[in-house]
Write a protein that binds this DNA or RNA. Structure first.
Length: 755
RNA sequence: GCCGGAGUGGCGAAAUGGGCAGACGCACGGGACUUAAAAUCCCGAGGGCCGAGAGGCCCGUGCCGGUUCGACUCCGGCCUCCGGCACCA
């Protein structure tokens, strides 16, 4: 081989493997990502949503998430920020338990094995984390504080038990939060969800409904999309609560309505079959009617959520025979049971105004109830003085026109004024008051499963439900449990766990066997990272004050409601307890788009997961990283195809060869020493370099337009490479150095090597 | 039904405080290097029409209108797709 071809050979061959191994080893050895969180100054807290280690393989969607985070993290480091980038594992949850049933491997073992493999893959992608702060929610050192925080919630009345109809998934044999029921089916197993009565633990999220809603206005760096989803979920509506006296009952029945102004048109009342007053009404009825009521209640409750809540479902009702009094007209109105009245919204009882509400109208027509319009418009009343015939209506009249048949409110135009008048009158007369209703319901956190944080409570026959004292934490998950997939919570098998002493009276007692929803674990893990090795407390408030809120949170849109709302609730509740100072957990949120495969979401069960590992093996981590960022704007969904990988790899090869060429001709590597100012025609290349600096800076700041940032560096490299024989070595030197710096956050290994 | 987002070449996509539409990349075509291949490099390309050629003309950012010297971008009205909520009183 001649000397020239040897040089050509060396320069033309970009072999990422050894380069990447070298830099990854150096970064790990030098612990470059380590941050002493107790020392203040120029902090930047970047966070990726911690992964659920359900399988051993990451897919390219995960990859996109972590690469995005790593790129931002490295940019902030380059800008001189003291950047914290921790990683951990959302390690509790049902799949590990199901795997145990199928394969006999204990959930802990299964989970730890998955964590080890996923960690390797993150490492192979060149993602840099401060592993000294690693946490796993299944570690007693973590869930101990989960239990501790639960006890604080309990002390404040924010954790409580109640018997309630709950969503029961027959497949998972556990209850689900409302949020985990999608289209009447279990979000995870897809089974039809049933309703069961169980005594369960709840967090009182509804106490924070208003603040969760208001807080959204102070989050300018969250997308409208996510904020809208949260607003819809909280579902605020203004209206009034009205008391209706019912013959035969001592207590009046409360009704929630957004249209108290139509009270004069309320011609019936309808209760949800689950309404507590229904039992009393049944009790006080004669035998045949009583049986009818009981049968109706039974029938509706047997319907699945899906059947009951689907729009086309027939409106079924039953006249209880009881009469309530319309407080405005003084007239008796019938009290019905109706399947369309939901037990857990408003008060579980409605006033029926068929003339002005389509649902009430349909119900009234079916059961021949009176329809009394109280608004008249010009169309329905051309003469201006006549009556609107309720019997002739074919659908509910839209709100409009002015009130009539409404006593002192007559003539008031439809709108806030009419509603205000009605509320004023109700309050004056003691018949009700203005009220704001929310769709949001309390968070059901009990799970009848093994692989979760045990709820630290003891059931004592003498003292009732007693909290486990802080000093006795953690309540450890027992190991003597077998997973056979039989009915019931596996935790109940462990006698050593279940049989205990009451912390209050020391008498024999039974330990609570419910575990916590894993969304509890993920509602505060970002705070634990800041003080991850603290054995005396969940965190030190002063340390936390330096790092919270998280500066930039990155994750999937699928967590737009559940996780993000619960985490916000935790921060607000714990701030009220003076355990921390932040009011919101995440200053800025970036939700990246999903990567689909032929339009379908990637999932283990569908078997359509694409792993980034083969790309790393074939082309190196830098190519994999740049390609995954290059496929499109990161906030947009993308359908996976690896057809463009070669192009990105060619680009990195050109950059590498360019810098090797510069080193060869100038005797330095591109970033060593200042170059002589280029002159003449070289200015064009210089200008291109400055253009790229500006473009990459703008694209990365706020916009997260990594695809166009990379394309700008491509342009710079292409131009420099094309003209490498024609321009002065100094100009080439400058262009190569600029390109290496700009590409560093995306392709750190090759860039570091070019330095 | 209410709310949010999107619609641009063969494909992924650029360009929005209004100013050359299609940067960058894939795939494609032509060429250089090579015995050959791989690798690498250079050139071409939205569609249509006219021209031997250099080149020229017309059309073109989901549809219809509007504002403007000028619109992918702003305004009005639709269509389609994606996502959230929904018998929520």
């Amino acid at each position: 081989m001649t000397e020239k071809s040897e040089k050509t050979e060396r320069i033309e061959r970009y072999v990422p493997g050894p380069i990447e191994a070298k830099w990854q080893r150096l970064w790990a050895e030098r612990r470059v990502a380590y941050v002493d969180t107790a020392v203040p100054g120029n902090e930047y807290y970047l966070l990726n949503m911690y992964p659920y280690p359900s399988g051993s393989r990451l897919h390219v969607g995960h990859g996109r998430n972590y690469i995005l985070g790593d790129a931002l993290y490295r940019r902030e480091r380059m800008a001189g920020r003291k950047a914290l980038n921790p990683m951990g594992w959302d390690a509790f949850g049902l799949p590990a338990e199901n795997a145990a049933i199928q394969s006999g491997v204990p959930p802990r073992e299964y989970t730890l094995a998955n964590i080890a493999r996923m960690k390797e893959q993150l490492h192979a992608l060149g993602c840099l984390y401060d592993w000294s702060k690693e946490l796993a929610s299944c570690d007693p050192g973590y869930y101990r504080w989960n239990q501790w925080l639960f006890l604080r919630m309990w002390e404040r009345g924010l954790a409580y038990r109640k018997t309630a109809p709950v969503n029961w998934c027959p497949g998972c044999r556990t209850v689900l939060a409302n949020e985990q029921v999608v289209d009447g089916r279990c979000e995870r197993s897809d089974d039809l969800v049933e309703t069961r009565d169980l005594t369960q633990w709840f967090f009182r999220v509804t106490d924070y409904a208003e603040r969760l809603l208001e807080g959204l206005d102070r989050l300018p760096h969250w997308s409208d999309r996510v904020k809208t989803m949260q607003r819809n979920w909280i579902g605020r509506s203004e209206g009034a609560e009205i008391l209706f006296r019912v013959d035969g009952l001592t207590e009046p029945i409360r009704v929630f309505t957004t249209r108290p102004d139509t009270l004069f048109g309320a011609t019936f009342m309808a209760l949800a079959p689950e309404h507590p007053a229904v039992a009393l009404l049944a009790e006080r009825s004669e035998a045949p009617r009583r049986r009818e009521i009981e049968e109706f209640v039974e029938r509706v409750r047997r319907e699945s959520r899906l059947e009951r809540e689907s729009e086309g479902a027939a409106k079924e009702g039953l006249d209880t025979g009881f009469r309530a009094v319309n407080p405005a007209t003084g007239a008796p109105i019938p009290v019905w049971l109706a399947n369309f009245v939901l037990p857990d919204y408003g008060t579980g009882a409605i006033m029926g105004v068929p003339a002005h509400d389509q649902r009430d109208f349909e119900f009234a027509r079916r059961y021949r109830l009176t329809v009394t319009p109280v608004y008249r418009t010009r169309e329905s009343d051309p003469g201006g003085a006549g009556d609107v015939d309720g019997n002739a209506m074919t659908e509910a009249a839209p709100h409009g026109g002015v009130l009539y048949r409404s006593g002192a409110w007559d003539g008031t135009p439809n709108g806030p004024e009419a509603i205000g008048k009605a509320i004023g009158w109700l309050e004056e007369q003691g018949f009700g008051k203005g009220k704001i209703g929310y769709r949001l319901r309390d968070w059901l956190i009990s799970r009848q499963r093994y692989w979760g944080t045990p709820i630290p409570a003891v059931h004592c026959p003498a003292c009732g439900v007693v909290p486990v004292p802080d000093a006795d934490l953690p309540v450890l998950l027992p190991e003597d449990v077998e997973f056979r997939g039989v009915e019931g919570n596996p935790l109940e098998q462990s006698q050593a766990f279940v049989q205990t002493r009451c912390p209050k009276c020391a008498g024999p007692a039974r330990r609570e066997t419910d575990t916590m929803d894993t969304f509890v674990d993920s509602s505060w893990y970002f705070m634990r990272y800041c003080d991850a090795t603290n054995d005396d407390a969940a965190w030190d408030r002063k340390v936390l004050a330096q790092w919270m809120p998280v500066d930039q949170y990155i994750g999937g849109i699928e967590h737009a409601i559940l996780h993000l709302m619960y985490a916000r609730f935790f921060v607000k509740a714990l701030a009220d307890m003076e355990l921390l100072d932040a009011q919101e957990p995440f200053q800025a949120l970036f939700t990246q788009g999903m990567i689909t495969r032929d339009g379908a979401k990637m999932s283990k069960s569908k078997g359509n997961m694409v792993s980034p590992v083969p790309i790393v093996e074939r082309y190196g981590a830098d190519t994999a990283r740049c390609y995954i960022l290059f496929i499109g704007p990161p906030d947009q969904d993308a359908d996976w195809s690896d057809e463009g990988v070669e192009g990105v790899h060619r680009f990195l090869g050109r950059l590498w060869r360019l810098s090797a060429d510069v080193a060869e001709t100038t005797g330095h590597r591109p970033l060593d020493g200042p170059a002589e100012p280029p002159q003449g025609d070289d200015l064009e290349l210089l200008r291109k370099a400055h253009w790229a600096i500006e473009k990459v800076t703008n694209d990365m700041a706020g916009r997260f337009a990594f695809n166009t940032a990379i394309s700008a560096v491509m342009e710079l490299v292409n131009e420099a490479y094309r003209r490498r024989e024609a321009v002065a070595p100094e100009a080439l030197h400058f262009a190569a150095a600029t390109a290496a710096s700009l590409i560093f956050p995306f392709a750190p290994h090759v860039a570091a090597d070019a330095y």
